[in-house]
Write a protein that binds this DNA or RNA. Structure first.
Lengths: 154, 154
DNA sequence: ATATCTGCAAAGACTTTGCATGAGA
DNA sequence: TCTCATGCAAAGTCTTTGCAGATAT
C-alpha cells in the first residue's frame, strides 16, 4: 500500500507524511516502541509500553496503527501459534532485515537467528524466482520458522 | 505427545489406539475428511465436510480432535494470516511430507509447492543442525511460506 | 464397568467496527 | 477549515471450557 489512494511509488522508509498519512503523537509513540526493542511485541504488549509514556493512547489506536504499518510494509506481522499476532519493524538501520525465527513450542520463546542467513537468503532468492515464474505469483515476502523445544523446555 | 501419559515411542502412523486413545466415529470421520482433500481446511471447513456425512458431530469435537491430532504429530497446524488456523495431514502415502506454501495476500489462496523442495530440504537440514547446536534447541518442525499476489490479484 | 469422549451452551481471547470528539496540515 | 485520526464501547470471530449424558474397550 504505497499511497492511500493506491498510486505512487512504494513506501519504503517509514515516511508517513510522504504517503499522505498524518504523523500523529500516537503513531510516533508506537513507532518509537517498536524501534526500541528486539522483542516480538503483540498488540497488547505494544499498547502497554506506549501506555507508560502516553496513558491516553488506546488499544484500538495501537491495533489500527500496527495494521497501517503492516500495510505500508514498515512492519511485519507474524503468527507464532499462540493466538496473538506479533509485530516487528521490517527494517533496521542497515536496511531490510530478514526475519527467520526459532519458536519454542513449550514456553513460546522466540529467537531471531541470523546464522546461516546468507545461504538461506541466496536459496530463497532462487526459489522465489522459480516460484514466481511457475505460478505467476508476485512474491513480496517470505517467512521461515523452525519449531521445537528450547533448552529449558526439553 | 507420543502417549497420553507422556511415555513411550513417538506416534507416527495415526494409531490412535496404540497410544491409548479411543478410535471413535467422530475421530474417524475427521481423519477421513483430512485424508480426502488437498485443501488446507480450517476447523469450520472440516466441520462442514464432516457434518454432511455425520450431522450429529459438533464443532467442538472437531476442534478437540484437530488439536489432539496436532499434539500427536499426525496433523500440522498452519496460520496463513487470515485469523483462522488451517490443518493438513502431516504425512501422505509416501511418508512425512514437506509443507511449504505460497500464500496470496489478496484472496487467501494457498498453493503447496513441491518444486525446489529437494534443495530447500537439504539446506534446511543443515540450518537445523546448526541452530540446534548453537541454541540448544530440539527442532521438531519447520515452516516456509512465501507471501505475495497471485495471478488474479496482481 | 468405567474412564473417555461428545455435544450443547456459555465463556474467553483477540481483533474490528460505529460513532462522536479531537487534531494535523 | 476540513479531512483524517482517536478513544470508548460494543460487536464480531475464532477457539476453549464446564458439564451432564453417551460411548468404546
Amino acid at each position: 500500500m504505497p499511497w492511500k489512494d493506491g498510486t505512487g511509488p512504494p513506501w519504503l522508509q517509514g515516511k508517513f507524511k510522504g504517503c499522505g498519512y498524518r504523523l500523529t503523537v500516537p503513531r510516533q509513540a508506537i513507532l518509537d516502541v517498536l524501534n526500541s526493542t528486539t522483542e516480538h511485541l503483540s498488540a497488547e504488549d505494544t499498547y502497554l509500553k506506549v501506555h507508560k509514556v502516553h496513558p491516553a493512547i488506546g488499544l484500538t489506536t495501537v491495533y489500527r496503527t500496527l495494521e497501517l504499518l503492516v500495510q505500508t510494509g514498515m512492519v511485519f506481522k507474524f503468527d507464532f501459534g499462540d493466538g496473538r499476532a506479533r509485530y516487528e519493524l521490517s527494517e533496521g538501520p542497515k536496511g531490510i532485515g530478514h526475519h527467520h525465527h526459532l519458536v519454542c513450542t513449550g514456553c513460546g520463546r522466540i529467537i531471531d537467528y541470523t546464522d546461516f542467513i546468507d545461504e538461506e537468503v541466496e536459496l530463497l532468492k532462487r526459489t522465489e524466482k522459480g516460484l514466481s515464474k511457475k505460478y505467476n505469483f508476485k512474491i513480496t515476502n517470505h517467512m521461515i520458522q523452525f519449531h521445537g523445544l528450547c533448552e529449558k523446555c526439553q
